[in-house]
Every structure is written in C-alpha cells, then in structure tokens.
Write a protein that binds this DNA or RNA. Structure first.
Lengths: 165, 165
DNA sequence: GATTTTGTACTCGGATAGGAAGTGTCCGAGTACACATGG
DNA sequence: CCATGTGTACTCGGACACTTCCTATCCGAGTACAAAATC
C-alpha cells in the first residue's frame, strides 16, 4: 500500500503544464529542473502520461510536452492510473482454492473479502476522480493571497515556455 | 499502489481464527496448511497482527493464535494497517521546495495535491473500517446456502483446534 | 506408589538470504533550425 | 540575392544497471508434556 515516488512528480508536472498558454510546450528537462528531480526518471513518467492520452508530445528542437486535453477534464485518478497502472491494489489469489481442502463448487462466488477490498478501492478511486487538475490550481490560487506561488510558476513558464507560432 | 500478498493471507487467517470456540487456539502451521501458503511467511504476518493487538499468542506445545478481541471489533482496516504499516500511501516529498525556485514562505501551506490524495486515502480507510470480520463471516454464511464452505472450515477447526481446558 | 527431575518435542520470535519491482541512467531515432553552397 | 542541400543541435523514445522492499527461509528462546529416576 504505497504509491511510487513518480506519482507526485507526474501530478506536479501536469499541474505546471496546465499553466502554459495554448500552443505552447515545455521540455521535460525544464520540468525536471523546476522540480529538482532526475530528468531521465521524470521522462519515464511523462511518457506514461503521453501513452495514456493525458499529454501530447512535440518532437524535435523547440519540442516538449503539453496537455492533450483541458485541465478540467484531467482528474487525479487519470494521472495516478497512468503512472501506477490500472490493476487493483488488492489481488485476490483465491487462496480458498488452495491447500488440502479447496472450495469444491466450480462457479465459485467471489470472495467476500475481495469484494470488500475492491469496494474500498472503488471509493478511493471515486474520490480521486472527483478532483480535477483545474480544481487543484483553483484551490492553490484561492489560498495564495500573496501571489508568490503563482508568480513563481509564471516566471518560470515565461522563461522556458516555447510557442510554436 | 499495490498491496502485499500477505494482506490476503492475514485477513483469511483472522477470519478463520474467528471461527474457533472461546479458549481455543490454532497453530500457525495449521493455518498455513489450510491456505496452502508458506508457514514461515504466514508466521511473519501473524506476528505483525499479534504486535498490533489483533491476535493473542499462546507459546509452547498446544500453543497457537487466537483473536485478542471479538470479531465484531476487528475491522479490515485494522488488519491492513497491521500488515502494511500505517503510513499513508502518498508521501508528499514537498518537491515544491526543491529545485532552483523553492517556495519562499516558511509556514508553507500543505500542498493541495497532497491534501487531495490524503482525502482519497481517508475515504479508502473509512470504507475498510466500516467492515468487520464478523460481517464478512455473516455475508459468507448468508450466501453459503449449501453450507459447504462453512462445513469445510468447521471440519478443519474440529481437527486442529486446541482447547486449553 | 507418589514426587521430583530431566529430557524432548513442539510452539512462537527474530534475524537471515533470494527475487521482483521501483529508481535512476544511458544511448539511439527523429526533427527543426542554421549555415554553407550553388544558381 | 535567393533557393537548396547539408550539418548540427536539440527533443523524445526505449533499452540498460542499481537500490529498495517484498517474499521466502532458517535457527534460537520458551513452554508443556512425558518419561524416568528417586524417595
């Protein structure tokens, strides 16, 4: 029951990419530098996000990443599943069927324990799917009265954003 | 985002221990044999459950494990936390404070992303804490019209349970 | 025969190897710009 | 002066080592019974 470190990097990266203007892209190296993490490792997760249809890539010089859809349509669940994989956390190995006394019935009812665990995970995912990247940014802006955090991000984007036009 | 294999073993073991009569104990070797898993590995998790106050141990020959409290007071969350540890799955490394442009404010507000992830995890845990071992057993018994599953467990307990009296 | 002593077998407990997955890194394929060259 | 060809520099993409944690295992501490020795 632990999420990989890359999830946090991925979410922060998506949040930052949501701040650039339409048509602009940001190189993975810039994202890694801003967050102070390994560029190669971040790249790995950005590729996963790209494969999941959350990010778009622009190859070549002046290339980089941008959101593939609006921040309102990207939920935390999308990002988490893209990075961590979509398999449920609790994998019922049906150990009832092992051992010397296996459950005889072929059309075996799903294990009640498994059902309960999956219910809990559905609740977890539902909670995550309820939060969009746009809402996160809105929350941050609402509490950032001094504007320091926003200014920091904007300054960095001004410096590193690449507009194709 | 994946739970260890031992969680399932632990829950099944607790469920089985809930079936023995008051004062009776069951050896770890019997539990392992019934579930068809490695005795030494199961022992590891049973120790964790014992340390968490979920199970009681009786040393020596005729020894074994029993529940430390009634099945109504043991939730799935208790077992999961005992085996997996109680640290939250999402550990916010505060990567905002890394990199060349760290967040300046010292009393830094908790990261909104972290807050959202922890909210989701609270929902997950709340769902797990809502289900007790007793309820699981009740569900199984309710759907086990033929009584085959119950008979299997009872037969095994009759054979391996040890009463101290 | 009853009691004490000793031994053994069985239990849990913690410390110890092996393997899979996450973490971190590297080099290759592809593209756009810049420059040099020829018309 | 303009168009074209070439070279270079920069990007993402996938394949390759290293570390950490999960998986699996072994041996030691402690206890209850059983048997043997003694009173």
């Amino acid at each position: 029951m632990k999420l990989s470190e890359g999830v946090e990097q991925a979410i922060h990266s998506v949040a930052m990419l949501a701040g650039l203007t339409r048509g602009g892209v940001l190189a993975a190296a810039a994202l890694a530098e801003f967050h102070g993490v390994s560029p190669s490792y971040l790249l790995k997760h950005l590729q996963a996000l790209s494969g999941a249809g959350i990010l778009e890539t622009v190859p070549g010089p002046k290339g980089g990443y941008r959101l593939a859809k609006t921040a309102e349509k990207i939920t935390l669940l999308d990002v988490v599943l893209a990075v961590e994989g979509s398999e449920p956390a609790f994998r019922c190995a049906e150990i009832r069927q092992r051992g010397p006394n296996p459950v005889p019935e072929k059309p075996v009812r799903p294990c009640e324990i498994n059902a309960a665990m999956l219910r809990a995970e559905r609740a977890y995912r539902a909670e995550l799917s309820r939060v969009t990247i746009a809402e996160i940014l809105g929350e941050v802006a609402a509490h950032d009265t001094s504007g320091a955090v926003a200014a920091r991000g904007c300054a960095f984007l001004e410096l590193h954003e690449r507009r194709s036009i």
